[in-house]
């Protein structure tokens, strides 16, 4: 049993990660954390650096779940990345964070979350940042 979570260092990302860890503990599932960047910006703070990687690793170890971190620095966009990993790992659940966006913003920028929701082959759990609840 595998859960895939899309993670970026932001409030939404943290909310998704926290829930994913809970969920993994409850279901006794393996957790695959996906952090990726399309690599189209010279500087991309959504990609975790070595320090954040180690913190993430420590946090997951502490939670006691069986985990795997998938960090991709170049190539495809986040939605494709999550979907691809989910398929390859035969995930039972995908957890993602949602950002508040206006309709126009979504029209222009596209939405990672929307594409994951529409195209995923398994249930998707989506969360807003905890202080938006």
């Amino acid at each position: 049993m595998t859960i895939v979570v899309g993670y970026i260092p932001s409030e939404e990302g943290e909310a998704a990660l926290a829930t994913a860890i809970d969920e993994a503990q409850r279901r006794n599932a393996r957790l695959v954390v996906v952090n990726s960047s399309k690599g189209d910006q010279l500087v991309d703070d959504r990609l975790i650096d070595a320090k954040q990687y180690h913190e993430l690793e420590a946090r997951l170890t502490q939670s006691g779940v069986d985990f795997w971190i998938e960090r991709k620095s170049q190539g495809i966009d986040a939605a494709d990345q999550i979907l691809q990993v989910a398929e390859a790992q035969r995930a039972q659940l995908i957890v993602i964070g949602l950002r508040k966006r206006t309709a126009m913003g979504k029209f222009l920028m596209g939405s990672v979350a929307q594409r994951v929701l529409l195209q995923a082959g398994c249930p998707v759990l989506s969360l807003k940042a905890s202080n938006d609840w």
Partner: peptide, 8 residues
């Protein structure tokens, strides 16, 4: 094109 993003 450098595809590996860095961080500031």
């Amino acid at each position: 094109l450098r595809l590996t993003p860095t961080r500031t």
